[in-house]
């Protein structure tokens, strides 16, 4: 398996309740997995644990047989080769779009950097926006820059935290499709968390429903569709059946 998460446990300091409770899953290369849950269900915490921004109390993560963390090993976030797109994108406001993308490419030579920046900007269709500052971009453009920045260093895994929560409803529908295309084109394994079933059904190859830090249900979108998908969504987007 490309990514293997085993028995992940975590609780925040000074609390007794487990935020993540014995969470395990394996993912194949290039697959898009959605973690779906209400707020407080522990979905964002799982992303932070995988990213190395929090330290789990138990569990392990292996990427291509390489241990990222377990009982003995704990790689710092900067050494994991995992990319992340934050809910508010976290684009560095004092850097241009190009500089934001270049930030994670310090291991490349100057020419290679230039080439890679161009590639990812083309991938997200923002070739002409390299010299702009984040505040000069729309919400959708900012999100695409955040994705470009995260995928530029060729991470093994990309994590997306509520990627559509800052967008208006109309833009959400458009960007959902774009994002799936970008992720598939780049063949990057991804996990994204959302509280919106529409996002999960539209984007994911696999869905995991989370409740109180534990897995409540899982399967392909089409498997979960009949059981839990609201009828109005089915009516709006019938083409998704059978993804």
């Amino acid at each position: 398996m490309y990514i293997s998460i085993q028995d992940l446990c975590f609780s925040y300091p000074d609390t007794n309740r487990a935020a993540v409770d014995h969470f395990s899953l394996t993912i194949g290369k290039g697959e898009v997995v959605s973690i779906l849950g209400k707020s407080g269900s522990g979905k964002s915490t799982i992303l932070r644990l995988l990213a190395g921004l929090e330290k789990p109390s138990k569990g392990s993560l292996c990427i291509q047989e390489n241990v990222v963390f377990d009982d003995k090993v704990f790689l710092a976030p900067e050494k994991r080769g995992i990319g992340m797109v934050f809910q508010d994108y976290a684009l560095f406001p004092h850097m241009t779009v190009q500089d934001n993308i270049k930030f994670g490419l310090s291991h490349l030579k100057k020419e290679e950097k230039k080439k890679r920046i161009q590639e990812v900007l083309e991938l997200v269709e923002l070739e002409d926006y390299g010299n702009r500052y984040p505040h000069q971009l729309s919400g959708g453009q900012q999100q695409r820059v955040a994705i470009a920045r995260a995928i530029a260093p060729n991470p093994h895994l990309i994590l997306l935290d509520e990627p559509f929560s800052n967008l208006d409803a109309e833009l959400q529908v458009k960007i959902r499709k774009e994002l799936r295309d970008i992720l598939k084109k780049a063949n990057i394994t991804s996990i994204f968390v959302t509280h919106d079933e529409n996002d999960a059904f539209a984007l994911a190859d696999w869905i995991i429903k989370l409740k109180d830090g534990r897995i409540d249900a899982m399967g392909r979108p089409c498997d979960l569709l009949g059981a839990s998908r609201p009828s109005e969504i089915r009516q709006q987007e019938p083409e998704l059946v059978g993804v």
Binding site: Q6, D7, C9, H22, S24, T26, E31, S57
Partner: peptide
């Protein structure tokens, strides 16, 4: 291919040691 393991039980003692 996706495989999910579901675990029961939650060891509080173990968690305490890891918190330290």
């Amino acid at each position: 291919m996706l495989r999910v393991k579901r675990n029961k039980g939650f060891l509080v003692e173990e968690l305490g040691c890891w918190t330290v």
